[in-house]
Amino acid sequence: MGIVTDKLPGALEKVPGGNVLVTRFDEIINWARASSLWPLTFGTSCCAIEMLMATGGPRHDLARFGAEVARPSPRQADLLILAGTIVKRMAPRLRTLYEQMAEPRYVIATGACTISGGPFIYHSYTTVRGADEIIPVDVYVPGCPPRPEQLFHGLLTLQKMIKEGETIREPGVRRKPVISALPEGITLEDIQGEMKELLVKENVVDVQHAVDKLKWPSGLNESSSGDSGANERGAGDGA
């Protein structure tokens, strides 16, 4: 059955002849929605390999989170995992795809390109700077490309949001977007400040510094007994 991230909401009451589940309508609907997300197979570039293929594969296995039923048709999907750069020509198609999906629908933007345009932001005449200029995004998963584990974190974040999310009285209220996989205590402003500092700095490579810094620790060799001499020579000569 996979990983149970949350137990069934509500209270079980024993009655003669069986059990009765007492719960709220909102809770049980949101629980069901969160536990069986059907993603659309939408991949434009590099992220698709990690987000759709590696996560769908046997090592990472999206099925553990109840989200493995990847649908090629937007009519049958309720989760749009944006994997890859969106360019101007693709933008109207993406909008169409989103509008063809049935409500409630959720969007996870994975990778630098769908968040901001990523490495293609400057001097590009086609790259859209962030998919949220076209469609609303619920969860952002940073990385270039993110590891499959990061997508899982994003998915769990989305599931949490859905469970806490909309009610029947206020359907379709747009939730505030969340950035997944930010460690506790680090804010977005911290990262932006750090990036700005790095961009301003003159980037000249100090080769000696790089060679010293990137040397593998010598203790690592002991774990691999079957190594040939070439390794030790290599690691030693790097210094």
């Binding site: 101007k88 400057y122 001097h123 590009s124 005449y125 086609t126 700077r129």
Partner: peptide, 25 residues
């Protein structure tokens, strides 16, 4: 081939100007 049929200008020309393009700071 790559751009829409109604695209104005030829982007790899050195004098191509575009409202959309951003210069690197």
């Amino acid at each position: 081939l790559f751009l829409e049929d109604d695209w104005v200008g030829f982007p790899l020309r050195k004098d191509y100007q575009d409202d959309f393009m951003l210069d690197r700071p």
